[in-house]
Design a protein around this nucleic acid. Structure first.
Lengths: 229, 229, 229, 229
DNA sequence: GATGAATGAGCCTTCATTCAT
DNA sequence: GATGAATGAAGGCTCATTCAT
């Protein structure tokens, strides 16, 4: 029968190829969804719109993701994981709590700055991450838990070592993130045209001023300025 | 002739009562809506749900407010206005830029802490106020513009006088608000049981550390600690 | 108790007075409804609007009429009855079938011309009266049946006497009415400013031409022209 | 490479089929809507009802038409256009103003008689076309304007040539249409069982009697009677 | 009796999701 | 596997009608 040769028939494709195509779609969908969620928000985003943006059909989309929520969830999970990995990778070569913190900030900002759509989704969620029961999907929560713990424990250590003023580490972590977001929101608003490294230094400086005892802050602020020269 | 008593005459005292009841409903609706918006967000909120929460019918709700957007808008407008007024009233007796800032922070926090539902709506909006084009209703924008200008110009003055480090006033204003919100989010999350005055002092201290030169920060931190004793 | 003297209390009014007031309301409502139905059509008309136009409350309106349909029905019934009565009164002094017809036309037109709102309702209904199953209310049907019979039997007699060409009397009656309506629609459209007597003569002439044998038409057209001098 | 057969390629023959099915639905919807509008009127018609009548779901209906008004508009526009075209086509072979008029009448009647639902919608609108500002949709107005001009200018020419009595062409056009409608309403009411050609001849005869000088009318009435033998 | 505030059924429309082709 | 047409549940809003004051 000639049916087997119909253009859409892929039943004789090797599993490897099938998997590869599936991953291709997956990525295209995630990219498209990120863009649409960034522009329209979760409720405003239409599945049809996402499928069109990805250049596939609704059916294919649903064949790969279970629904709108699952898709959203997946983005948060994937991007969040990537972000955490990248941060973890970069902070490895850091020496000491403060350098660890500053490098982490830089990694975090650099990651988001190169993923503007995810950044915009992130900013849209606002402080949702700071009040966990308003998060749309559990995946977000898990990621944030992991990231938070990393950040929190760093702050806790820093407080112990005296490089940070005595504040609740949780609060410090949240404020740090919120501050980052404000800075990046401004960067988005101004057309994403500013130099991301200025952004990094600005946030680092602010963090030092906000959380370190004066003399510690002064020392490190000088270092940053020196590096920027 | 006693024409004034003709059957169709309603000019007696009725309007007063009518008005009173109307205001009663109005308030009940606003409270209910605030609660529902706080819990479900704008898109997730259902008019039917709001009406039920207010203990009235859909028809009555629509008799008083023009629709979902109008209702949301009204809350933002009213609460936003109240908040700005309260802040303006309290900062009047402040002396100097820094005291002005600290009193303003206290007023802002105290206002929101006593309106938890509005606070939660506020936190839901997240940074929408920081990227103006994502605001849902014009009323919100106007309010924020006014509030922002107040805050910004204060920071600008403070930078000129040397009580603040040299940062862009817009950024300072946004960071301040974001930080407040984080602190309050944590307070909400912990069941709204902590002493709001601790909240006030925490935020004030953080603001001082983050934006003032060390010696200025030190002096005022001492003052705050003294007052709290 | 002083309650008995409250302005809206009418329990001690004499039945005569009560009846009189009721009729007063009745008329006010009918006038208001006629106007609103004329302007907005049946579906577009709002009971609230009608009550306001009549200067009374919705409750009073519903105390006197059973609902929107009943109100509409009542107008059709009342106005239709009035119209038929007036026509019957005027044609009494007519001599012969043709004069009877011409006087009837005049009476019909004069009636509607002095009730522009009812006329507009009438025109809005279009040919509803010509396809009985689209009539909104039974009252309309009864009235039209009576009026139709009058007109039909006149045409039937005229056909017998040879003053009309042989056509189905029902059809003749309907065409006559439709033609009237067109003429009046034009009059309404032009701002109701033309002389109604020109309208009467125009319609009479058209009817003569359309339904009489040539020589009969010619004779009566001359009479009409003569009367108009 | 056989890129044309890639899984996401749909450029084959599918669009043809899709278009065909779409047109099928389109027609089914238009038919259903025509019927429902005919029976219930515009306001009374429910979209759910139309979808059910067409044997499809609401979603599909809305996928093809933008809404109730658009659907109504489309019917008026399409049917009106078809009618005008058919009339224009048939009157082409007419010779002289009077034959032109008679052929036009025949074409108009024959068109509506074969589209009973559109006819009933048409009759429901009543004289709306005679008072343009009551038309529901712009599409209707345009169609009527075009048709009217055709009819009017024919009457105007006929008046000039002396084959019609001197009456305002606008009025003549309107009366003609109203008369047609009455005749057709009767035909509908009687179960649409009468011979449409009788209808045509009846209306033609009436038009001749109503608008032509006696001798002209006599001559053409004889012609019609001859043709019917 | 008079009022008009209150009710809630019902309608148009959207969009996440399914499934026949 | 891929498609996208088809589905229908659900929500915002209106307005005829009722009934407590």
């Amino acid at each position: 029968m000639k049916a087997a040769a119909a253009p859409t028939d892929t039943s004789n494709a090797k599993p490897r190829i099938r998997e590869a195509r599936r991953n291709l779609y997956r990525q295209a969908i995630l990219d498209a969804a990120e863009k649409v969620f960034a522009e329209e928000g979760f409720e405003g985003a239409k599945m049809q719109h996402i499928a069109a943006e990805a250049g596939i059909s609704l059916g294919t989309l649903y064949g790969i993701f279970d629904g709108k929520t699952a898709l959203y969830s997946e983005i948060q999970s994937t991007r969040g994981g990537e972000m955490l990995e990248q941060i973890a990778r970069e902070v490895e070569r850091a020496d000491g709590v403060l350098e660890f913190t500053l490098v982490g900030i830089a990694a975090y900002v650099r990651f988001l700055v190169t993923r503007p759509n995810y950044l915009r989704m992130h900013l849209r969620d606002g402080h949702a991450w700071a009040i966990f029961d308003t998060l749309k999907v559990p995946a977000q929560e898990e990621q944030w838990q992991r990231g938070f713990e990393m950040l929190q424990s760093t702050f806790a250590r820093g407080v112990d070592e005296g490089v940070f003023v005595p504040l609740a580490p949780t609060l410090m972590a949240r404020i740090t993130l919120a501050t980052h977001q404000i800075w990046m929101a401004e960067w988005v608003e101004s057309g994403m045209s500013g130099d991301p490294e200025d952004l990094v230094r600005g946030i680092q400086a602010h963090t030092l001023r906000a959380f370190c005892p004066p003399e510690v802050a002064a020392r490190w602020l000088a270092k940053i300025a020196g590096a920027a020269r």
